[in-house]
Write a protein that binds this DNA or RNA. Sequence first.
DNA 1: TCCGCTTGTTTATGGCGTACACATAGTTGT
DNA 2: ACAACTATGTGTACGCCATAAACAAGCGGA
Lengths: 275, 275
Amino acid sequence: MADPERSTELLWGAKGRRGLNTQRIVRAAIEVAAAEGLEAVSMRRVAERLGFTTMSLYRHVPGKAELIDLMRDEVMGEAAPGDGGPGRETGWRGEIASWARASLALYRRHPWLTESPGTRSVPGPNAVAGFDWALGVVSRTGLPPAQVVAVVTFVGGFVESAARRIVETERMERLTGVGEEEWWGARGSLFDRLRDDYPALERVYREGAYDEPLDPFEFGLERVLDSIEVLVRDERRDESRCQVCGNPVETPAKGRPRSYCSRACQQRAYRMRRG
Amino acid sequence: MADPERSTELLWGAKGRRGLNTQRIVRAAIEVAAAEGLEAVSMRRVAERLGFTTMSLYRHVPGKAELIDLMRDEVMGEAAPGDGGPGRETGWRGEIASWARASLALYRRHPWLTESPGTRSVPGPNAVAGFDWALGVVSRTGLPPAQVVAVVTFVGGFVESAARRIVETERMERLTGVGEEEWWGARGSLFDRLRDDYPALERVYREGAYDEPLDPFEFGLERVLDSIEVLVRDERRDESRCQVCGNPVETPAKGRPRSYCSRACQQRAYRMRRG
DNA sequence: TCCGCTTGTTTATGGCGTACACATAGTTGT
DNA sequence: ACAACTATGTGTACGCCATAAACAAGCGGA
């Protein structure tokens, strides 16, 4: 019972402060990335921040690439289905929009996500959870499963692309101190001289395309949702596509028209019907 | 007239072989990236390939970041409008599809493009030329200029996103030697145990979503084109949007309905009408 | 007590981008 | 013709990076 200082440390701080573990390393790396960008994340910097030597990290993490994978999956957990989506919109259109906006918010909260490799690595549990959540949302459209997956991929790709653009633009503005419209404005005179080289650009510029530019994310999201709406509407009674996988199905010249593209899909539909 | 060896060198090789210049450096860097990937591109490696010292490069290129910018712009020149588009499809839908497929081909020809920073830097002349070409294609839809720019951004973002996914998938397969469907197949048993954690994923998987997956690029392209079609159709007589910039325009309760969202757009329309 | 395992440290290697001082060849002004 | 200057390539050096390999200290069980 002597030395209450040490007792307290052991009881309360043992797991938390004493000793290294994977989670502490990952969290420290995220802090470095948040403060100074992904390119500032090095094994040295992370170890310094934790008060350990560089090599100590390798007892808990195989290498830097894996550390970045872990960082990605860690923050992916923030958009977990637990919160039930931020907007609580009704109908699949609103739900997908909410999902897209929540994903964008995630990318903006962690701008380094757009710089890190991405699909290169094995998806982690949190990433899969987000994927699963999105599948659930898109499933409510009633599309066949293969199309549900394709739609989730499509929307996810759009959001990542738009987020990358936004984050890069913001970084550019912060770095150079000059906003986008000023930049284009300053180039106006340049375009005057390049009128012959870039006729279409010169034309839309002259017609005021850049005076009140549309928000790329909201514009793109609207397009994405429109396209899904077309798909859902057409899919309802489109006899020319397989009910299971959505691939086109050949219509035989005579006889009963087919509902499935292959014997395999027919069997799957049967099994689904049975439970 | 003595030493024909040297004379030949001077006459034929002077510009081509003797001496360094920016273009030779850029081309050598592209060769390295093509052979061993972007991460293998270092100032040392590029200099070695040219038979010069590392530091000699800095007489012609400010630094590595700028070199990569130059590499990007160099290959962007390949999709120049000169070839008139590869498919020579008719109608804006076919033209945009051709543009998208040509861009995808460019990314596949130079997989390192998807790894390099991207929008981070100032666009080069060839990139702007490609942008200009795309603007010309999309302009034929008859959309207002601000929407033309937004559509080009949208389509370009989609293609880059899809290309990144494709290139990463291919690299993964080449690296691990295992195809995507095998990978998911091997994880099938894993999903069985995680049935409770990922219900939606488990469900679409069981319903055969991955048995005959849709091509993400072709599926997405179809969606993108559908959404533009909706936009073009709606835009034809949509009185609630500005004819110039496409922003929504307020409808006054009484009196003549407005055609433009602002005095500025009204003036621009007037100027355009006059020539 | 000794053994083996976990965890953190020390030292070393090879690669990277690039700053800086120097060398040499070509050009220009007188 | 000669000096000054500029353009271009080289050699050396610094600090950072990821990580391999050997080592050391603590700790649990036999």
